[in-house]
Amino acid sequence: MSQSTSTQAADAPIISLHNVSKWYGQFQVLCAVDLDVRKGERVVVCGPSGSGKSTLIRCINRLEVHQEGRIFVKGLEMTDNVKNIDAIRRNIGMVFQNFNLFPHLTVLENLTLGPMLTRHMKKADAEDLAMHFLRKVRIPEQARKYPLQLSGGQQQRVAIARSLCMEPEIMLFDEPTSALDPEMIKEVLDTMIELAESGMTMIVVTHEMGFARTVADNVVFMADGRMVESAPPEEFFGNPREERTRTFLDQILKH
């Protein structure tokens, strides 16, 4: 894996998890998970709550530390090495369930902070970049407001724009619509669909099966820390192989 930098085909996975396990005390949250994600691929991770799906993607940018197995992002291994962590995080944008915008900064300042501090951009350039992405998520007019003055859907779109300002190659979404009122879910999903269409590599933890069906290249089902099934959406929804997947799909698709 470590030599897989230059010569290997564009086919080489941009994210690669081998045998990743993690425990909280005695409780095993991740059991030997394997996952490969290629550049431009969209993966949707679903599963019942407590199945370890959030923990899985949080291990990819080391908001959680895995205890066994290996995680590679663009050929760099995620270890205790601070340089690696930093290099990997620069390539990964993350969107959280609760937005986690910085409430004491305006929308524009939320977006320019990262580029100015970690990419050493000039303020004017960072603001141009921020406005570009605010237009992409269709809320440039909110630039001077504070996050708490916006609706939930608008806040989540700001959070997406904030991650995009770091110009990452990979975006992780941790239940991005779970904290939203129903009428705001669509505007966030639309933003994510446009992002997917632009070719972004995405891993999305979500219960939005409609989104999975239209956008995903691969749907992964997790339960009890294990990866139960992984298949393209037609197969995953049309003809799931595993009994647990079927039960889960029955439960969430009926409502």
């Binding site: 940018n61 995080r89 986690n100 910085f102 902070l113 501090l117 970690t118 991650s163 770091m166």
Partner: peptide, 9 residues
Amino acid sequence: YEAAASLSL
């Protein structure tokens, strides 16, 4: 803290 970490601050 997590948002800041994900911006690699």
